[in-house]
Structures are given as structure tokens and as C-alpha cells.
Design a protein around this nucleic acid. Structure first.
Lengths: 181, 181
DNA sequence: ACCCTTTGTGCAACTAGTTGCACAATCGCC
DNA sequence: GGCGATTGTGCAACTAGTTGCACAAAGGGT
């Protein structure tokens, strides 16, 4: 049950229309919570029905007509409740590790190329994060919200650093492996 | 579409019944792919219907009667195909990071306790992995499958190391923060 | 005036994963 | 020999996320 809360957070940061939200999910928010525009529209409908958000004044009713939403007090309260409630981490699921384990049984043929591709993707992502860090978090900034946002970005950077490191190591291991087929 | 392949891998490592699979998913496999017994039984049924696995000889038909499965050649082929096929990483989703971002907007009240709890969980997990590493991967072992399995375990260890480190850092940041409510 | 692209909203159907429950066999024990 | 715990299999209903498509409005070019 996290998508509605992701949307509430985004709308609190800035009231937006469905498409604007979609774009923001493709960028910053999507770094740790992704969603398609279909999901977002559906969820906006629900949130409005529940009275947690509402459309901004200049409300055109028509389809294909821009419609912006803002968060109501009830929405903010719900978000605060959710943020502070204890939650268990959701179960791990990582396809790549699963494939590696499968490769131990059926052979590593073909896997190396995809590892290389993943490495590139993670390197690119890491570079992007570091760019953002340089741009948005110069060493002097330290308002509380900035510190929190920076913390989140650090998690992203450290995670990508882990993946690039691990994948690099995995590839050198692969090079040393006999060609199991 | 990874659960069937996780099951195929597990069955290739050792033919098992539904409940045995469930236990193994709770342990080693569950470290990067988790599933409930209900999911597993359902999937076993599908895999059998598709001709990728079959029940072992001493087949009791009755309910509440143990039933073991083994992988058929078609199943092994499918697993090999899947392992080597290129796949995009699935979208990131991390609730804790999302909550932190929400906290930047609605305040950090209550979050700290849960961060502490998560830290403990990750520390415990890390200790468990390190235990396994010491037990199962003494420095001399290096058959190809062992190297691959070790690689997977290293990923687990490094990930947990990242999380404990990051959470520790997050908690010191929290301590320095004014009490936003 | 017409068409094509972009922007924007949305429904429907499907796949994957979760939760809650039911029920059969077996084993130990009192 | 009946009773409760454990082992084992499974269905049904639900929630979350994905994929494929439809359609309306606005702007730009020719």
C-alpha cells in the first residue's frame, strides 16, 4: 500500500496533474518507487473518492483536459500516520541473483553478456545520481529537509556503487570460470 | 515470471515435495526470492501441466499425502533458456526510502524507532550470512558451482552491509535533526 | 481546411503476489 | 482408542502492478 503515499508525498511537494506526476515518477521519485501513468490516474481517482486530495479550482471536467490535484488535510494526516507506522521490510526479490543460482545448475552460457549490460545500466545510474548530488547538495546546504533528501540520495548512490562493484567482481569470476554450457 | 524458474532451480538442486520447497524458500532461496506455500503449490500444478516437471514414481494421489517432484528435460531446457535471456532489471521499490522522503514533508515523528528496528533486522541478517559464509565457503573451495553460489552470497552480505551502514548513518543524522513534528 | 504530433486522461484485461481458510494423513501420548 | 499437534496439500478471494489500447484537445505545418 505504498503508491497512494508516494503520490501524496509528490503532491505535497507540489500540486500536479496526472501527467506531471507521471513525469516526476519517471525522474526523482521513480528512483525508489516507480509507477505507470495508468496506475497513477487510477490511484488519483481513489484518493479523491476517499477525500484525501481534491482537484484544484479551475476544474475542467472534460477528458483530455488538464486537471491538477492538491492534498487535503486528511491526506496529509494519513501520510504522517503511514510514515511513522512500523512496517516490515517487504520480501527481497532479485531476478539477477536468482539467475546466477540457476546458472550454477544449468550452466553460465549467455549470462555474461547480460551481466555486462546490467553493469553498464548501473554505472549510468550511478553517474546520474552523482551528478544530482553535485548539483543539488553542495556541502554548505543543511536545512532539515535537505538533509533527509540527501540521505535518500546517498542510499541510491551507495546501492548503485554496490551493484557496479559486485557486477565487476562477478565478471572477473566469470572470466576465470571454465566454459560450462 | 521468475517464481517457476526459482522452483525449477530448487528442484534441480534436489527433487522435493511442496512443503520441502516451502522450507527451502524460507531459507537459502528466500534470501533473494521468497514465496508462500500456496504460491508454490499453485505453481507446481502449472509446471506439471506444462510438462516441465513430474511427480516422482511412488505417487500417492491423495490429499495430505506427500508428493515429490523432479524436473524433466523440457524443464531444464526452459530454465537454461530463461537464465541466458537478457532481462531488464525490475523497477526499484523501497518503502523505507519512500517514507524518508515523505518525512521530509510531513515530519520525522515516529520514524526513528522503525529505522532502529530495521537496522537490527539487517544486522541479524548480515550475521547469518557471515555465518553461512564461514561454514560453507572455506577459502580452499573453488569448484565452479561453489564460486557461483559464493558470488550470490557475497551479494547478500554486501547488500546487508550497505543497509546497516546506511541506517546507522541515517540514525546519526536523525539525532542531529531538530524535532520536526 | 486538413493532417500529424504532442499532451493529457482513462478503461479493461491480465499477471503476480498475499491472505485466509479448509481439510486429509500421521504420530505421539495418555 | 480417542485427541491434539504436526506435516502436508490445496482452493478462493483479494490486492498490487503491468500491458494494451482508446480517445479527446491543442498546436504546428502545408
Amino acid at each position: 500500500m505504498s503508491l497512494p503515499h508516494a503520490i501524496l508525498t509528490a503532491l505535497l511537494e507540489r500540486p500536479s496533474s496526472g501527467l506531471e506526476l507521471t513525469r516526476r515518477f519517471d525522474k526523482s521519485i521513480g528512483y525508489f518507487w516507480s509507477a505507470t501513468h495508468q496506475q497513477i490516474y487510477r490511484e488519483l481517482g481513489k484518493l479523491e473518492a476517499e477525500g484525501l486530495i481534491r482537484t484544484l479550482p479551475a476544474a475542467q471536467p472534460a477528458r483530455g483536459q488538464k486537471k491538477s490535484y492538491e492534498v487535503l488535510p486528511a491526506g496529509r494526516a494519513e501520510l504522517a500516520r503511514w510514515t511513522s507506522a512500523t512496517q516490515d521490510p517487504r520480501p527481497q526479490r532479485d531476478v539477477l541473483l536468482l539467475r546466477l543460482r540457476a546458472a550454477a545448475v544449468v550452466g553460465t552460457a549467455g549470462l555474461e553478456a547480460d551481466l555486462r549490460r546490467h553493469l553498464e545500466l548501473h554505472q549510468r545510474q550511478l553517474a546520474e545520481y552523482q551528478e544530482i548530488e553535485k548539483r543539488d547538495f553542495p556541502p554548505d546546504r543543511d536545512a532539515p529537509e535537505d538533509r533527509l533528501r540527501h540521505l535518500v540520495l546517498r542510499a541510491g548512490i551507495d546501492l548503485e556503487t554496490f551493484w557496479t562493484g559486485w557486477l565487476t567482481h562477478a565478471l572477473t569470476e566469470f572470466a576465470a570460470l571454465p566454459d560450462t554450457d
